[in-house]
Every structure is written in structure tokens, then in C-alpha cells.
């Protein structure tokens, strides 16, 4: 699974930067066409849900999606599936 922010919905409140346990979201730096500083993704492959959702068959964590007041965060299926090497920091 791949984490994605819907730029059409994001209003740049940065709440996702605060709630993600892996700090995958970073405050945006460049304004988009609507003037919104959409957060940027920092190595999103570290996201638990990205890695393990298909394995467990249910949403894991998902706090960013629930918290996002603008329904802008979602996961996209990746097809074909490409294995990636990732490092999880403890």
C-alpha cells in the first residue's frame, strides 16, 4: 500500500505531522495552486499500514487518516507489488 495526500482536499493544518508515530509527515514548504502548504512525506514506506495491511487484512494504526480533518489522507493499492527494502528505526 502507498500513503498519499489528496492535494484537492488538504487545507494544510499539519495535524498529521503531529500524530504520526513515525513522523512520516513533514510540514510543507511550497504552496500549491490554492496557496496551501501541503505536508510532505518523509520515507512513507515506513508506515505500518503500508507495510502490513495486506498481511493482516485490516487497517493498522490509521491515526493520521482518522485525524485528518479534511479527509485528505488515504492509501492506494500498489500494483504490481514491488518489494522495497526498508529500515525501521526503533
Amino acid at each position: 500500500m502507498k500513503l498519499a495526500i489528496d492535494e484537492r482536499r488538504c487545507k494544510g493544518c499539519n495535524l498529521c505531522t503531529q500524530v504520526c508515530p513515525y513522523h512520516i509527515f513533514r510540514p510543507g514548504t511550497a504552496a500549491n495552486r490554492k496557496g496551501v502548504l501541503v505536508p510532505e512525506l518523509d520515507r512513507p514506506e515506513r508506515c505500518t499500514n503500508c507495510r502490513l495491511r495486506n498481511l493482516y487484512g485490516r487497517t493498522l494504526c490509521g491515526v493520521c487518516q482518522l485525524t485528518c480533518p479534511d479527509q485528505a489522507i488515504h492509501w492506494q493499492s500498489e500494483r504490481p507489488y514491488e518489494p522495497v527494502r526498508i529500515e525501521v528505526e526503533y
Partner: peptide
């Protein structure tokens, strides 16, 4: 969507 609430408004959450 997007809804009318301001940026950072908790109502969406």
C-alpha cells in the same frame, strides 16, 4: 468534499 470547515478544525476529525 472538501467541506466548508476551516483548516485545522476538529469537526472533520
Amino acid at each position: 468534499l472538501p467541506h466548508i470547515w476551516c483548516s485545522g478544525c476538529s469537526n472533520g476529525t
